[in-house]
Design a protein around this nucleic acid. Structure first.
Lengths: 136, 136
DNA sequence: TACATATTTAAATAATTAAATATATAATAC
DNA sequence: GTATTATATATTTAATTATTTAAATATGTA
């Protein structure tokens, strides 16, 4: 359950309604029908947002009778913070190293000639993305 | 510059192409034309993504001659981590308090009767959102 | 004039939403 | 007990809206 990918969590958090739902759940546990009333969207729309938040591992649900109760998944939220930290770490955000200058600084014509080193690209974002496109 | 809202930053980060651009810039500074070749999207599409990242304060740009060079905005990225931490803090993710149970636990009929306390709602997500909808 | 990038425009795609429908549980009638 | 009705939520469908994209155009620089 606690293994949602960071991209899904970021997308889930990148919506104001969903952020508001999280804020409500921070105040207290809520049944779905309460969330509908509080947010003011239709029942299917709320169900949709709750599903996205659940799949992202940001909330939990528990059914009691005909009511489904929702709560924050604090572990999932904390894990997202760790994921963010790891992502920024991978971008060397916490090291003081100055960025390596682009080869274009030395030779501005390089852009039309050969462009960015495909090996470095493949290393950063994966083969498929980088080799797909042929030089013009 | 360093004051982008968290929602814009989350939206900016919630796209795989844009994450890949950040990863490329972690390896080195790049001219826009290099990024185009590395990612394999059209020039206008890359320009669009770069604009979104710039507006979110996640990258910087510097023009030299006809080439625009892009770099990570490490301060912006670090600030986002702080914003995330603050957001989770506001959700009490780091306190051990058990969530207050929904009043529906006691009285399952409350949902059709009166629903969620409008005052708590307003406090969490703002007046507009909560009072808009009239009780049925 | 040629090149690098940004902007505008229009098309394609994806996300959001509400209406309609389906499922499950509870309450009531018989 | 079984049937019936009502309630809570999920799912499906279709419409709307926002995002992404490429083609065309504009701007700035060598």
């Amino acid at each position: 359950m606690g293994v949602s990918k960071i991209i899904n969590r970021l997308k889930a958090l990148g919506d104001l309604h969903r952020q508001n739902i999280l804020k409500l759940l921070a105040a207290q546990e809520m049944g779905a029908c309460e969330i509908i009333q509080a947010i003011g969207l239709s029942q299917p729309a709320i169900a949709h947002h709750l599903k996205i938040l659940k799949q992202a591992g940001l909330i939990d649900s528990e059914k009691e009778g005909k009511i489904v109760f929702y709560n924050l998944n604090k572990d999932g939220l904390k894990e997202l913070l760790k994921q963010m930290d790891g992502f920024l770490e991978s971008l060397s955000c916490f090291s003081c190293s100055l960025p390596k200058p682009s080869p274009l600084r030395q030779n501005p014509n390089l852009c039309t000639e050969m462009g960015f080193d495909p090996e470095v690209c493949a290393k950063m974002v994966g083969e498929e993305t980088c080799t797909k496109r042929k030089r013009r």
